[in-house]
Structures are given as structure tokens and as C-alpha cells.
Design a protein around this nucleic acid. Structure first.
Length: 116
RNA sequence: UAAAGCAGCCGGAUAAUCGCGCAUUGCGCUGACGGAUAUUGUUACAAUUUUGUAAAAAAUCAGGUGGCUGUCAAAAUUUGGCAGCCGGUCAACAAUGUGAGGAAAGUCCGUGCAUCCGAGGACAAAUCGCCGGAGAAACUCCGGACGGCGUGAGCCGGUGGAAUAGGACCACAGAAAUGUUAGACUGCCGAUGGACGAAAGUCACAGGCGAUGGUGCAACGGCGAGGUAAGAGCUCACCGGCGGUGUUGAGAAGCACCGGCCAGGCAACCCCCGAUAGGAUGCAAGAUUAAAUUGAAGGUUAUAAAGGCUGUCCGCCGACUUCAGAAAUAUCGCUAGAGAUUGCGGGUAACCGCAAUACCAGACAGAUGAUUAUCUAUAAACAGAACACGGCUUACGGGCUGCUUUAUUUU
RNA sequence: CGGGAUGUAGCGCAGCUUGGUAGCGCACCGUGUUCGGGUCGCGGGGGCCGCAGGUUCAAAUCCUGUCAUCCCGA
């Protein structure tokens, strides 16, 4: 879990981010970016793994936790590229990302953030 | 030693770094703090999904320091400051504590709990179905009976009634498939009666028969002997079924004796008998707070007052309020319990009783994670709480313990 | 989280209520018609009825368990 002020929490916020349709894809992970910030506030991030990706909750939780942890570590080291300019980010885990380990995942997230 | 059967247990540990939910405490508390402000949603119209057009609302709006005592100051009964005590509380930060399972799963049963509906009774419909016990209840558990499977330890079983209350069905084959005592296809006999004949006998006419063959899952008990014209429970022995009596048992049922044999299957088809229970919907149940906002809904103001439509009256707009609609959010429901652990006692057991101990997840885009090192055995199986509990079923790498059975070998 | 439905030939569906023979359309194969192809005509193949047990003489159908897919409720 990220600290609360960095979390994307509202349903309206999620659908608003999806509507921008600004997306990048790599290694089974899709990144949606929201609008750019107007004022100074933290970038919020959400992590989504659909039930269609895998049937079992344990596998889905694992993927979500990996993505979250990688993003957290990058956020902590200040290595998030241009992500700070956006109000919201959503990471969607797909089928291709299920078998990735921590280091592969870290690479994927890093590359995605660089492309923003 | 090997292969089995049953019962039970474990479901990685330790350390380091980074990180999260919840609880408590600390710090803080009136321009402290903090949540939502992403064009979603609402209303109207249009068309087929889904969208388009228009309208109003939007920079504003939930939550948020109270009480008592003492003291000081202003002032003359209150106000303000400070301190203490008691309570309340948002986020960040800090500290401490705590944080998934044996199946949390499937949702197959049952119960609590909540809302709505229902006078009472009967019928119908529903569910269950060997016996006794346990349990809040259950497609639950325990002990037993019977039947089946296995060399055995053991395992499996929706197991009431088809001799009487009734209906349906039993394809094809077959003569016939359940009928007021079934039926003559292949057949057997023709004793008795009849015809012919001297008689033996012949005819197969009146009739008798349910044995033989064949069909079928199944042919109206089986098998053997007697018996007979041929046959038949017609008679007898044994076996099976059914009924009665006696006896053992709490009962299911077992055992013994007697009886007459017109007795098919199917009740996981209808049905009959017995038993049970108000029904429906599920925590997204439901309760509370509340702003913007909508309504040609109701009431009050109103025999009063202010403003507008017209100078006056009526009426309308208006004001207040109730009700209804109303998205997200917030608070509660929400975890102290048919509970857990340990011990003692009762019971064959399921389980019950008593005592002691501690409080042990409660989220809401949803916590319990990531990396590294060491250890055992390469840490690797199935798998993630969402109102709670009791069961059932299914998935599962590896390991451990106890009891029992069979086989082989040795003593 | 709760509620409901469906699995039958390569594809889309009947049959299940009332148990005995699995059928229809398209596709596929062969053949006829045509100079050739299409169309059309005739003939044919292909199914352990999702899986596993049970009841029954007999199960796609009845009963139980299980797996998969889809739909609905904010």
C-alpha cells in the first residue's frame, strides 16, 4: 500500500482517467495517464487487475502488490520521470504480467514511466 | 521390511532494510486540520445499444473544543486568558500492540441477525424418511441394525410402504408383461366321456395340462423326490419370500416354531403413511446524519406584516415547514462469540457440565507486502477475510505421530 | 458479495416434461448436371450428448457431486 495521499481512491476519478485515453503498454502492463496538474498536489496512482486476467484472487493480489511495490520504490528514489506532472496514473495488469518476478516488473514500470 | 486401512497434527522459521491496515497513547484542536471539487451525476427531449441536444446547479459544501474547578484581567454579570481534571475529535508524525485459512474456496445445506408481508384454522404445495442418541438447526454428527464390496483392517448405502388404497410405465422380442385364476406359438396327455373296433388299440372330438422349447432384464417361487393319463405346492425334504405366535433386545432387528403359497419390476414416476416448519428477501439486509438541488405534492403564515404582477380586493409569485424524489461521500450495522485455549468431571461416542486464563483482522479502488542472508530438505502445494457461526463438498507439495490389517523374511 | 441460466457433430440449435431409434440447418466428402466453376439434384461420413458416480433391465433424459462458460443486481 502506498501512503494515502498518493492513492487513487474514487470511482469518478478512475473513469475520468480512463476517458483521457492516454495509454502506454509494455510487458503485459498498461499505464493510463490522466490530465496534467493545475495546482501543486501529489500524483495519485491506482492499480487494477481484472478478474478476467486470472480467476484466483491470490494471483491477482500478487500482481497488484508487485506493481505497487515497484512504483513505491521508484517514487521513493525520485526516479519517476515526468510522472509528477500528471494528476493520476492507473496501472492495469494483464495476462502477460502474471509470471513476472520483482526485477522484471521493476524494469517494466520504469520504462513505462520514462515514456510519459 | 513392504503394501494397505483408519484417526490426528503441521501448513516454514530466524534476522536485516524499506512499506501498509486497525486499535490505544502522545503531539495538535477555530481561519488548527482535513475530505470532495477530474463534468461524472440530476432533470427534460430524441433515437435501437449507446450516445446526442438542452436546462439548471458551482465555487461552494459535509465534519471539526465542550463541561467543571481554581486563578488572573476587564467589568459588575458576564466575557476573555492561563492551569488542572473529565470527555470529544480530523489528518500528518511518533511510540506500543496486533494483523488470513485448513480449506478463508464452491455456495450445496442450516441458524442467528435485519427489513417487508401475513388475524386464526383447514386443505394444497414443500422438505425429510432403517433404529436409538447428540445438537440451535441441517442433504449434520455419534453408536447400532440390515444390505453390498474387499483375503483383511475396513469402506459404501436418499434403507418407510408395491399381499390390498389406487393410477401410469415396462421399448424391441415374445403366445402372453400384471389380467374378475395371464396365455396354447412349439407342445404333453387324452385316464374320464364320445366315435370306430371282438380286443389290443386308433381318432385328437368333448376336454385336461402349465411340465418342455424358444423370447426377454424379468414368464408368477428355486431345486430334488414322490405323485399322475399328462401335469401342477397336489404332497414331502432343503432353500428363498410372506404372515402369525413365542422369545432376546430400548428399538431397528435377530433366533425358534407354526401356517397357507393367485405374491414380477419401478415409489431417485404420480401416490399412500409418518414427521417437520409462518412466508419472502439478503449486511449491496437495514438504520442514522446531511448540503446543493428537483416536485402543477401537502400544511402553516393568512381576518397579521414587507415586496412584485395593476390603484384596491381575490388570485398568483414569495417566506417558513412537512413529505416525496435524490448520486457519491460520512457514521452505525462491524465483530465478546450456540467463541478460543487449558484443566477437571460425566458419557462407548457425538457431546455435555464446571473452573481458570487472555481478548485474538475488521478494510471500502479494499491492509497482512518486497528484497537479501542463514537454517532444515532445492521453501516449492492448494489457495486471500468482506455480517457472523455450525456442517457438507471439492483442491492440496511435503513431513510427523498413534493404532490396526495383509504378505514376506528372521529369531 | 448475492441471484440465475447453459454445456449435444467443425459452427448454430432441436430432442430431456412422458427414460428404449440421437435429429435439423450451414459446413465437409463422393457423384450427377456444365466446356469449366457456382447454383441445383442424389448419396454419404462425422457424436463415448462437459466430466464422475448412483437409481433402472436400460440414462442425452431421473438423482447427487463436480468443472467450465455466460447473464443479472451497485
Amino acid at each position: 500500500m502506498l501512503p494515502k495521499q498518493y492513492r487513487l481512491k474514487n470511482k469518478a476519478a478512475f473513469s475520468a482517467t480512463y476517458r483521457i485515453k492516454n495509454s502506454f503498454h509494455k510487458g503485459g502492463v498498461t499505464l493510463f495517464a490522466g490530465i496534467k496538474k493545475k495546482e501543486n498536489c501529489p500524483t495519485r496512482a491506482g492499480f487494477v487487475v481484472s478478474k478476467k486476467t486470472h480467476k484466483r484472487a491470490v494471483k491477482r493480489n500478487r500482481l497488484k502488490r508487485l506493481m505497487r511495490e515497484c512504483y513505491r520504490l521508484l517514487l521513493k528514489s525520485g526516479n519517476t520521470g515526468n510522472a509528477g506532472e500528471y494528476l493520476s496514473l492507473i496501472f492495469v495488469g494483464g495476462e502477460g504480467a502474471l509470471d513476472k518476478n520483482f526485477f522484471e516488473m521493476q524494469n517494466i514500470i520504469k520504462k513505462l514511466l520514462e515514456r510519459l
